[in-house]
């Protein structure tokens, strides 16, 4: 289960968990979270590796500018994890097709 801090900017009121999978492994996310947040709060901070040097990458700009956080969502490659809100049953894959390895 994702952890929450108290006293954050906007009040949290999470009615129920959202079940998604990451590379086939079940994860619990909070409704309204984006994929990047769901991964990070489950302890996954890197989910793809770079093409040339196979270096791990995860969130960087956090607002859709840098494209570092790319994931495959329900088969759609190269989606920005920081922009896509989790939905029940979503299948998330880390290593994008152009990547050699996996972080």
């Amino acid at each position: 289960m994702s952890t929450h801090s108290s006293g954050e900017t906007w009040s949290v009121n999470t009615p129920g968990a959202v079940n998604v999978s990451f590379d086939g492994r079940p994860l619990v996310a909070v409704p309204g979270q984006n994929i990047g947040a769901a991964l990070v709060s489950n302890g996954i901070t890197a989910w793809r590796s770079t093409r040339k040097n196979a270096r791990p990458r995860g969130l960087f700009c956090g607002i859709g500018v840098c494209f570092d956080c790319l994931v495959t969502v329900d088969g759609e490659a190269n989606q920005r994890a920081c922009l896509v809100e989790v939905q029940e049953g979503m299948e998330i894959e880390g290593s994008c097709p152009d990547q050699g390895g996996r972080a």
Binding site: E8, V30, V40, L59, C61, G62
Partner: peptide, 24 residues
């Protein structure tokens, strides 16, 4: 600066605002 865990300062703020949690 290319290590995971390095973020844009604004990216950290956006993360908190959008998700209500911290990235670390």
């Amino acid at each position: 600066w290319d290590l995971p865990g390095v973020m844009a300062a604004g990216g950290i703020q956006a993360f908190i605002k959008a998700n209500g949690i911290l990235p670390g």
